[in-house]
Amino acid sequence: MHNPRLARRGLALAAAAAAVAAAAGCAVEPDTGSVVDARSLTIGVKADQPGLGLRRPDGRYEGFDVDVATYLAGRLGVPPERIRFRTTPSSVREKALREGTVDMVVASYSITAKRKTQVTFAGPYYVPHQDTLVRADDDSIRGVRDLEGKRLCQVTGSNSWRRVTEERKIAARLVEAPTYSACMDLLAASKIDAVSTDDLILAGFAAGRPVKIINAPFTDEKYGVGLHKGDLAGCEALNRAITAMYQDGTAARLLDKWFGESGLKLTTSVPQFEGCS
């Protein structure tokens, strides 16, 4: 007996299978959300660190971090007019990346093993060192060991003083201050003898004050570009952009622009990258 219905059903099934195959063909690539594909970027920076990231009264941001971020975004194909900067204090950097309120963070953000579990870091784009700032006429402090018995600024929430008194067990006398800018006033008023933290931060504050950096570095920090955890393509692209920033002389120019007058010894060759993970 002729059974066309059955035969037609077979063909219809085949047509359905073909349609599925067609749909599958164009739906394998998922949306990665990498900064590589971004048309515009929201970048987290500091608002209160002269020389690195400072928010001016007119709402614009300026500093080494801001310039580096602008250059790197340009290398990713995002022009300055499509960048939005956003104040991102130290305490919220991981959260801001996780929640996507910022696409990347360039805010004196040190790469640590612990943070690497939550954030993918490109870079470091610079390796600052902890150093010590003293009054310009003070010759008694030439290295970190000379802080023994001296009055050292202890900034609330910062770990830098620990590196002196706890990690190295140097018996400096700690004087509390709410911010590094308050330390500068204490130093000028001779209420403390020294401020010790990342040399770039010191250099930013030193500008125009009667102080000097002693150029006796004793740690290596690693300022990295924070990205959403897992954005390996973005991280690799940024590492290439950082390499380019050093090769084309931009890094040297920016370092000189922001810290050239501080008397700080600056490194103008590309840092050793951390590796994307």
Partner: peptide, 13 residues
């Protein structure tokens, strides 16, 4: 599916 469809069609017809 097509092979089986063909087979079924031929069997039926």
């Amino acid at each position: 599916v097509l092979l089986i469809g063909l087979q079924v069609y031929l069997a039926a017809r």
